[in-house]
């Protein structure tokens, strides 16, 4: 008897969310199956890749990275990354804004965000420095300065969702990413709170938290998996936002990616290791249900794009 596969459809789907404006605006989400289950139903949109451009640490980047980008200038790097077909959006990372670090001023960050937004036609995602107060100020003011650009700020957290939701989400009509730290109940709670504030679920994205593969990463997979199961299986409208996962910020800081070959000759070239960590983590995140991943190294971006391309 021939094998007849039984399709497992859901009467629910992940929300579709559009980032950016104009010809290069990108819509993602919309799935009604588990990740890459194209045998159950065709995915409306493929997962997408964002390129992280950080304003800090260019000198410490790998040779391959520097060879691709050529110079430290943030705007020039954003342009080069945006020119890659594999890249759907640019994630401008203001790591230098940290008041306990380089403490770059909010005004300088705004000016840089504007310069990048003017230089590229792909959607822009703004990533902060993880300092709640500084990030809240950055997101609010950059949202105002780039009103109408449909940017995304990442991320609104439990401590900051009110100010960021009210400014970026409500006043300036930008997209808000809700960040929780690998905690499914908190992820839902944060979405509920943002929605109670009046932010439309169509303006929301989730950052469920991440880790580098091998660093407690199984919790990330389990969380993403259960979020997708609740979104589809229970038609839980509070968890149907598409998921965006910052990968590069996790993987390029662990010892596998920073230890020099001179110190650990057995481990081989640092750049290869870093790319491997980034690719492995990104592939696992996509397989667990991320609708978008943020990567840094051009080689990782190309590799993950090829994976998505062959599975979709």
């Amino acid at each position: 008897m021939p094998f007849t596969p039984k399709k497992h459809g859901f009467n629910a789907s992940v929300n579709e969310v559009t980032l950016g404006t104009g010809d290069k605006a990108v819509t993602f989400g919309g799935e009604s199956t588990f990740p890459f289950y194209s045998f159950d139903a065709e995915a409306k949109h493929r997962p997408i890749i964002g390129a992280e451009i950080s304003d800090l640490g260019y000198d410490d980047e790998t040779e391959g990275y520097k060879a691709f980008f050529g110079a430290a200038d943030v705007v020039e790097r954003a342009k080069k990354a945006a020119a890659m077909d594999e890249v759907a959006f640019i994630c401008l990372h203001f790591a230098a804004a940290d008041p306990f670090g380089a403490n770059k001023s909010t005004e300088d960050c705004i000016a840089e965000a504007k310069a990048v937004a003017d230089a590229i036609d792909k959607p822009l995602v703004i990533m902060g420095c993880k300092n709640i107060d500084k990030d809240t100020e950055l997101f609010t003011k950059i949202s105002e300065a780039l009103a109408g650009k449909n940017i995304t700020v990442m991320s609104a957290r439990e401590e900051s969702y009110k100010a960021i939701g009210a400014s970026a989400g409500l006043a300036y009509g930008q997209k808000v990413s809700a960040e929780s730290a690998v905690d499914i109940n908190l992820a839902k709670q944060l979405n509920v709170l943002l929605m109670q504030l009046g932010v439309s679920p169509k303006s929301m994205i989730m950052n469920l938290g991440s880790a580098a593969a091998g660093y407690g990463y199984e919790y990330v997979v389990s969380t993403m998996d259960r979020v997708r199961a609740a979104a589809l299986g229970q038609n839980d409208t509070q968890l149907q936002m598409p998921t965006i996962t910052p990968v590069s910020t996790e993987t390029w800081v662990v010892k596998e990616s920073i230890a020099e070959e001179a110190d650990l000759p057995d481990w081989g070239p640092r750049e290869e290791r870093g790319i491997d960590m980034e690719v492995t983590t990104a592939a696992a995140s996509l397989a667990a249900g991320s609708d978008a991943v943020i990567l840094k190294h051009p080689e990782s971006i190309r590799t993950i794009y090829a994976m998505i391309d062959s599975l979709c």
Binding site: I184, N185, K188, Q196, D236, Q238, L239
Partner: peptide
Amino acid sequence: NNNLYADSYLEI
């Protein structure tokens, strides 16, 4: 387990 817990579950 018909609905995923969140602190606001009574409000939704």
